[in-house]
Write a protein that binds this DNA or RNA. Sequence first.
DNA 1: TATCGTAGTCCATAAAGTGGACATCAGAGC
DNA 2: GCTCTGATGTCCACTTTATGGACTACGATA
Lengths: 264, 264
Amino acid sequence: MASSSGTQSISRAAALLRVIATRNAAGLRLSELVTATGLERPTARRILQGLIDEGMVRQAPETRRYFLGPALFELGLAASPGLDPRGLCTESLERIAAQTGDTVFLTIRSAFDSVCLDRREGSYPVRALTVEIGARRALGSTAGGIALLMTLPEDEAERIIDANTLRLPRYGTLNAARLRKMVARGRTLGYALNSDDIIHGVSGVAIALPTIPALPAMALSLAAISSRLGPERQREVVAVMRAEVDVVLERARAWRQGLSGAAW
Amino acid sequence: MASSSGTQSISRAAALLRVIATRNAAGLRLSELVTATGLERPTARRILQGLIDEGMVRQAPETRRYFLGPALFELGLAASPGLDPRGLCTESLERIAAQTGDTVFLTIRSAFDSVCLDRREGSYPVRALTVEIGARRALGSTAGGIALLMTLPEDEAERIIDANTLRLPRYGTLNAARLRKMVARGRTLGYALNSDDIIHGVSGVAIALPTIPALPAMALSLAAISSRLGPERQREVVAVMRAEVDVVLERARAWRQGLSGAAW
DNA sequence: TATCGTAGTCCATAAAGTGGACATCAGAGC
DNA sequence: GCTCTGATGTCCACTTTATGGACTACGATA
């Protein structure tokens, strides 16, 4: 982690931003940020103040909680890749959510983490909103993350699980050993499955997309209360998702040929 | 500019990111970044290296040019406001581009700058692609920016033009005095007009959207080669855009009532 | 081969950032 | 009301970090 040199405060600032991104909907208190990053309170405060001055962080005046700021939204736009993974999958997510009634997620891999790019909620009245858009989590701590691990060479997946060992328990009743079993089970089943393994009462299935050049590794996942996701329904739902994967791949192919049109 | 204290490197890093965002499609060379930010070369290099380590900047191995990195894209997602200005206007931009055949932009105000949130290209073979998505420019240096200035109280617009005086000439044959006239002309016409005023041969029209609570000030604009945008056609095109403003406002209203549905 | 412009590296130095200690405030408990 | 607790925010002497002048490396141009 000791990045070469001369950039201590930048890596600290980046760490703060990443932590805030984890739970941006609710925002974080200063003390939470301090424990999450291991910084001293005055240091964290000062850096946050600097980020606020730059518009990268916003502090709610009433609650004093910290949120990501508009400048990041704007920079993020400029940083968007030409082929936008999110735009590519919007309609597919919508269709899956509509057909299944459950909550659907688009997840990408980012180093040792997974990042939730998009989410659609189905019509079923009990919703499993476990992950919010933009949330960054240890790779493997969601069904989508497990699907992404499944596509990696075993030694690389192992390296990542190893690196994430300490972070995994934070998300519920998870640990490295259980995650390894879940990845193995996923390989057998042909799709990633989390049934009550991470948060009690919530289950999820996920499949990774084949690699699309110029895009990060992506996965589609679906979450519901466990009673709605028995073995039979898992297979149904995965079939729906597989069909949409084909749609996405076709759209990406069309885009590559300049037939962009409604690519986003 | 002298932000209180204790965050010099953060404000320097932010300045670098903002400059890169200005022309992210082509990327920037180190020397360009040095002159644009006024930093010493080793300093800029070191900070860029730190940003690269954090994934916020990417350096093309071949050309050594610097681009915004994937981490910003991911953070930007998490920073997206609940009501997404871009999603809100996607279809409207598409329809305007389809109906007019020209290039259409969605722009927001961000302090003294305008930021291009989205762009759609029409079918007309000669395209005016003056601004790229994510590009941050001095407020007033595009038709969209002028439309945004028009909606502000005169003294505030004046303050902004004043602050931007030095930056305006960078974008073509523009200066503070001409901009003031253009804002005045826009107030008379009822829409912002740039006919050959900024870049020779390129014209544009723009209208601001009424303020939508919880969203930044927004404007729709359209650019074309000047021969396609005489007074008559200006009025036609503005009529199309006005109709779409109503659509957007209706969508925002629907969203507020929880009837979100396809809000994005 | 010499010259220029650009990118990257080094390291003595100084300034910027650090964090222990203190001040302040809101709410809980007596 | 008054004290206690746990939080946020501020200060400033100290020292670690970041700075930038000077150097090297490379490639294009003459």
